[in-house]
Design a protein around this nucleic acid. Structure first.
Length: 270
DNA sequence: CGCTGACCCTGACGGC
DNA sequence: TGCCGTCAGGGTCAGC
């Protein structure tokens, strides 16, 4: 479900309800996520004050003095604030009860997400090898150009590699490549600096725009405040295979790269 | 080191 | 109506 804009939308939605709140209780109804929810997590988190809600790539970090709750939403996860006493539904696996009456509820049908603990002063191994944030000054086309030299794999897989840059998932990879006029299957190492500079800017632009729109709602994504995102209306290629290209009118084609669908325009993208 | 494919899991959807 | 195959926004890991 979520790419970086959806995770950031979730972060912004839940942050006001969590900041400076004390965790009163953690209820784990199903611990079988991507990795099991640690047995120690509820007791460790109980009584702690949430001092910040941060994001690293597609991970959310709920900071406390004794460590951080590390949450990933996987493909189908969502985190919402509900009223305490709101009955949990199917796939509502975890509740974090906060003082003041709010409840942070983790929902994840496919259970590809995770709910883990990061010790204070440490960086979890899941985060330690991540590349730069795409919206930071540490990321640009220069970086893409430098890291891509000699690489034969498709550029789409390259920009979705979390060791290169975090947060670029299938939707926005497709969109950024379209905006940049780059064919998704082109070998990453055979793209010029000038084109990577454009791609870097377009990645920033498409992610920023999606965040402003509250993310892309496909199926049932909702942000932390329960509202859907509106970016889907602006998608140029994702989910539009067989439809006309908005730029040239040609029919958009689809191919599979790394087990993921890639939609592109044969005329506009080379 | 880079790349490919299997795998984790449930649900929605299309074809028959 | 039901069964079956396919696909879905994530990422890790093994193997070559």
């Amino acid at each position: 479900m979520p790419e970086l804009p959806e995770v950031e939308t979730t972060r912004r939605g839940v942050e006001p309800h969590c900041l400076n709140r004390t965790v009163e209780q953690v209820n784990v109804r199903d611990s079988r996520l991507r990795w099991p929810v640690p047995d120690m997590l509820p007791a460790t988190l109980r009584g702690q004050v949430i001092t910040a809600v941060d994001r690293r790539g597609k991970y959310l970090l709920f900071r406390t003095a004794s460590g951080s709750l590390l949450v990933h939403l996987g493909m189908s996860g969502s985190l919402r604030v509900v009223a305490r006493g709101d009955a949990p539904g199917r796939h509502d696996h975890i509740d974090v009860l906060l003082d003041g009456g709010a409840c942070l509820r983790y929902h994840d049908p496919r259970r590809f997400g995770c709910f883990l603990w990061q010790a204070p002063g440490q960086v979890h191994s899941l985060l330690s090898h991540l590349g730069p944030e795409p919206l930071s000054e540490n990321f640009d086309g220069q970086l893409l150009y430098r890291l891509s030299r000699g690489r034969k794999g498709p550029v789409k897989n390259f920009i979705m590699d979390g060791k290169v840059v975090v947060g670029v998932g299938n939707i926005y990879a497709n969109e950024a490549l379209f905006l940049s006029g780059i064919h998704p299957a082109r070998a990453a190492g055979r793209i010029s600096l000038a084109r990577y500079l454009r791609l870097g800017e377009n990645i920033k632009q498409v992610l920023t725009s999606a965040i402003e729109q509250g993310g892309t709602t496909l199926r049932d994504f909702v942000g932390g405040d329960g509202k859907p995102g509106y970016f889907a209306q602006q998608l140029h290629v994702y989910g539009r295979s067989g439809q006309p290209c908005g730029a040239c009118g040609g029919v958009l084609r689809e191919l599979r790269l790394g087990q993921r669908s890639s939609v592109y325009c044969v005329t506009c993208q080379r």
